[in-house]
Simulated scan of single mutants.
Amino acid sequence: MFHTEEESIVTMINQIAQNNVSAGSESEVADMVENHIVKFWSRRMKKILAEQLASGTAEFEPAALVVAQRLSAKASA
């Protein structure tokens, strides 16, 4: 299946959240996902993530949505 870059970014953050669900609460999972993204994702990837959040059309896992919102708020500040 072919995915656009935007779809791939959303898929990746959702997979990271799903793979860390054993970390505990949604907040704890979100902390782990956020740490991963801050360490390993490029500015371009983070920008695409923010754009997908702003579009309102992407389907995020709950912890992934928390992370996207956190990072978007930090980028705006």
Rank of each mutant, 00 (worst) to 15 (best):
M1E: 07
S22C: 07
E6A: 13
M32P: 01
T11I: 11
V21P: 00
V21M: 11
S42H: 02
N19I: 13
A23K: 08
K47N: 06
A75P: 00
I37A: 11
R44I: 03
F40A: 14
E34I: 05
M32H: 12
V21H: 09
K39G: 02
A17N: 09
I13T: 05
N35K: 13
A73L: 10
A77V: 07
A73G: 03
M12D: 14
N19W: 14
Q69F: 00
I16D: 02
T4L: 10
F60R: 07
A23R: 08
K46P: 00
S22R: 09
T57V: 06
F2I: 03
L71S: 06
N20D: 09
A54R: 09
E51Y: 01
M45D: 14
K47C: 02
P62M: 00
A63L: 14
V66N: 00
A75S: 10
V33I: 10
F2T: 07
E34N: 08
E61M: 05
V29H: 03
A17I: 10
Q18P: 03
Q15R: 12
E6L: 03
F40L: 10
R44S: 08
D31T: 11
D31N: 06
V10E: 02
A64E: 05
S76T: 06
A75L: 04
L49M: 15
T4Y: 05
S22V: 09
F40S: 15
S76V: 07
G24H: 06
H3N: 02
A30P: 12
E61S: 13
Q69V: 12
L71D: 03
T11W: 14
E6M: 04
T11Q: 09
L71K: 08
S27F: 00
E51Q: 09
A77I: 05
M1S: 13
L53S: 01
R44W: 03
A58Y: 00
M12N: 03
A63W: 13
V33A: 12
H3Q: 05
T57R: 14
N14S: 04
A23M: 11
A23W: 04
